[in-house]
Write a protein that binds this DNA or RNA. Structure first.
Lengths: 339, 339
DNA sequence: CTGAAAGCGCTTACAG
DNA sequence: CTGAAAGCGCTTACAG
């Protein structure tokens, strides 16, 4: 475990550092280093468990073989699953990932981007707060490799991998309509994020094509920081007088959980009194009684595409064409919508 | 966004790199650099958004301000929560964390440890597979700072932060006994990990002190890789003939989920037909009907202590005394145990 | 008060 | 086939 460096090998074997470095980087043959020398070096390195110091190599080569991942919150299962995929995929290509959570804080995110650059990450994967136009634009101008996931900047031309939020919510709303629901509530958070807006639009669109008039009273947008407190009143307004909705679409998994708790408290039966569906899910959604109908996001694909696009860009694919992926969600119908 | 380096500042301001470096590292006063010079440097750096290249600084200083985190799986909510805490805490001290998942694979974990060392992390936090005695011992011999979390090596003297698994399961088993349960099943995974063994011992211990004879038939240890298939038979054996247990303790959250699914399939009512409790929980456990009684692990404390102990060690606290924390779990009683 | 220089551990043209 | 040397961008004794 004694740390051994390049110089030690060179000295012990009476060769130059150049030779050792070349051989260890598989450039021995290209540089026509004798098989014998190569073998001696390789054997010695293996025996003494030599590994190049990554900092030194990175400094010298100008790349760190590290990918930076900036997400709102690693403790959110949606992001931790994506992180897991990214990690797996990155490892295949010999990249390590360093992650940091922005907690949906614009300033934190900005600092994180800077900090990651100082740390010389070779590329960045960001699920952004969507409030850092300037930084993103600068990254782009500097031709720094990055790809946006989950949230993108509609006004900036970048690589991104997102899901079709509009389509997902439209489908599930249509599903509810097909089941005969006519008074469908929609509970969301304040639409700072485009993804959240799209979910609303999807809901509205479904109503529109079915000639169901939109009722503003059915649409509730809570504050992301104290949605739990607000949920109490909102649920009562929707399922009680005067609205008496017969279904509710929750636009995130945590809203679903929170809303369901309130429904239980006021003894409102799902799906008999009100049908519910959730955008995104948690692992126990099938065990809740009734099991929750949910729009599932393809987390694996998001992670995999993100890494692939990023690596492409890092290899300097001169194409300069941005890669964009808008993935479809999947509707998993369970009992909570009354089907 | 144009990248600017130390030399650029020195040149522009007609001072030496030494002076710039000193000032930027807050050593200006110590080295009695004139206030004026300091101000000029600071202003220039701020204006041009200068940040030191971390690789270079790390190489030069011999430390990277990075903590390595090796866990079985970042997609497991238990670990992602811990990761989140570790990240927050580390950030307070200006450390970044790089994580990698071992997937419970001993060889992978071994490689990860090596790889993290190459990357010059300053310290390591590991939730180990408990099969890498040699590597852990080497880390210790090399006096490399590290702390074990969640799982420790009983035979090696190291820093660690774990929970009292024995106590947690003993308590919940006692709780079941107090409720009048007499035929208590225990479903676990093959006890490769000490933590898992302790859970069994806790269960057995509770029976012992209550003079309830242990019945081998009540104890089921599944294979971690295909517990889902095995669960089917195991649940039937326990709740059906000939055992007819009146309660089941699940030793992990995913076993609980899997077991509950099977119970539903055979229409076995919880808690009337059989009471259940879970070691560890998922975020929707309170929404499941009946809500699941669970033994909660103090994830925040685990993460926080781990970082604190690690930083202490990294600062070379000569004390050479290992820090050990064995944290108590918390029993959250819900309806699934029939109370 | 400030600077020249060595060093961290690599990589890589360049030269022979 | 192999080596001397410069360079990556910092930090830090040492000297004045």
């Amino acid at each position: 475990m004694k740390k051994i460096v390049l110089k030690d090998i060179a000295k012990s074997l009476q060769v130059s550092k150049t030779t050792v470095s070349l051989v260890l980087n598989n450039k021995g043959d290209v540089h026509k280093i004798s098989k014998d020398t190569q073998k001696r070096i390789l054997d010695f390195a293996r025996k003494h468990n030599y590994k190049a110091n990554h900092l030194a190599r990175g400094l010298s080569r100008g790349q760190s073989e590290t990918i930076g991942l900036i997400i709102p919150n690693i403790a959110d299962v949606f992001y931790s699953k994506i992180a897991s995929c990214i990690e797996k995929k990155a490892k295949e290509y010999n990249y390590t990932v360093v992650f940091s959570s922005s907690n949906e804080n614009t300033k934190t995110e900005k600092e994180l981007i800077l900090s990651m650059m100082n740390r010389q990450v070779d590329g960045l994967i960001i699920a952004s707060t969507q409030q850092n136009e300037t930084e993103i634009q600068q990254l782009k101008n500097a031709k720094f490799p990055f790809v946006l996931i989950d949230r993108h900047y509609p006004d900036i031309d970048t690589n991104y991998v997102i899901v079709d939020n509009h389509d997902g919510v439209k489908n599930v709303t249509q599903h509810l309509i097909n089941l005969g629901k006519e008074k469908i509530g929609f509970i969301s958070i304040e639409p700072k994020l485009d993804a959240i807006k799209q979910r609303l639009y999807g809901y509205q669109d479904a109503l529109l094509v079915n000639d169901i008039p939109e009722n503003k009273e059915y649409i509730k947008e809570l504050n992301n920081n104290n949605y739990q407190q607000q949920m109490k009143g909102v649920i009562r307004e929707l399922v009680g007088a005067p609205n008496y909705v017969d279904a509710i679409v929750f636009s995130t998994h945590y809203l679903t959980v929170s809303g369901l708790r309130e429904l239980r408290l006021i003894n409102c039966k799902v799906p008999d009194d009100v049908a519910i569906v959730s955008f995104d899910e948690l692992s126990a959604f099938d065990l809740i009684d009734p099991a929750i109908t949910a729009i599932i996001q393809p987390v694996n694909k998001i992670g995999n595409y993100a890494v692939e696009i990023l690596l492409d860009e890092m290899e300097g694919s001169k194409t300069s064409k941005e890669s964009r992926k808008i993935l479809k969600t999947e509707l998993v119908v369970r009992k909570s919508c009354g089907s």
